[in-house]
Design a binder for these strands. Sequence first.
RNA 1: CGGGGCGUGGUGUCAACGGUAGCACGAGUGAUUUGGGAUCAUUUAGACAGGGUUCGAAUCCCUGCGCCCCGACCA
Length: 413
Amino acid sequence: MKQSQLFTKTKKEAPSDEVAKNAQLLIRAGFIHKEMAGVYAYMPLGLRVLENIKRIVREEMNAVGGQELMMTTLQPKEIWEKTGRWDDAKVDNWFKTKLVNGTELGVGLTHEEPIVDAVSNYLNSYKGMPFSVYQIQNKFRNEKRAKSGILRGREFLMKDMYTFCKDQEQHEQEYEKIVAAYHRVYARLGLGEITYRTYADGGIFTPRFSDEFQTLTEVGEDTIYVDEKKRIAINEEILTDENLKKLGLDRNDLVAKKGVEVGNTFHLESKYTDALDLFYIDEKGEKQSILMGCYGIGVSRLMGVVAELFSDDKGLVWPENVAPFAVHLLSLGQDEETEKICIELEKNGIEVLFDDRDAQAGAKFADSDLIGIPCRVVVSKKSLAAGGLEVKMRNESESKIMTVEELLQMLKK
RNA sequence: CGGGGCGUGGUGUCAACGGUAGCACGAGUGAUUUGGGAUCAUUUAGACAGGGUUCGAAUCCCUGCGCCCCGACCA
């Protein structure tokens, strides 16, 4: 893509109404647009990053048998009344709205109830289980306080998955499979080393602990206690001697850290299926409860975490897996020659942002650093005289001269 | 929801004593320039909204709205 065609522009200065680094950088670089507090739009570059994260999440969910679907944002209140979650005293961050005739509706903040409702049309025998469904969809939560840029918004993109199992054994198996898939997602985003499975409160769902996936960063809202050796953590919320004993953790091995919750998994048991009257008939013809699990990944939040963690004083530094483009191709007064190179790279399946603008070298370099595409390729009189392209990785300081063939070779491995 | 801070062109601004709304960036035009946000000329565009005090309000007061931060909350 030609950068001269890109309608978003970079900004030299950070917006005055943002303090969070992720929002400052993403806005300056033209990835996101703030519509209002906690509500951000994704511009072309930002959408590319978001789509890359979605692709990774999708691949991993599909790999553990998840079936993708899409539920609705508008929801009838009846199903929520059955589980007691329509009540503002129980769930206080609903966005509620009304039909013209006065019928109350909810704007989706999560989808346990509607999923169970939909599934009840199809599931009645033990033969249909286990199975899992997921979606990647905007969620709406009336947070009392949005904060930290895209880390905590009122409208945000989330992957939510639900498993349906006939018994505890089956449920545990599904659950652990998905936990493993979560670890792969974070690893592919470059967050594997600093993301910990963390015991947390099961909330109103269940007396059991839930698991959170916490990525270590100072901007995190949660305090967790990490056992580095076991690579597991416990959320401060449930840090009691009794719980430590139950979980086999020793207080002396724990180190307090700040974390951002980038995912969570819950054992729902049969709370929702029972309440919504979904049962199955077992081998003996007897009616049994269905056990559910639910599993969330904050997709847009992950983009914020990656932006926050992978950046320097010049701008963003995207990991290859999520970068909006693989190559940022800069022409310094060599547009014709550079365009040929661009076509050659694109022919080989490389995604290229081609800076064909009539701008100063300094401006192009500064923008390139800010946008943070992993591989910067400069074509100039100087580089051509030296034998080709000047290639510099965003996370390195030295550049190398190489030919187009050598560059292709490097990018393919 | 409690507390605090703030609201000036598209952006930024600890710019302006209650008295001519300034500067920089951006954008447009022309010229020069072309390896780290270059230079010159020129143009463009602004007080969150409503009310009040005053001869006169960006400035003081009230109400509303919005934004940020701390805390609580986070199914």
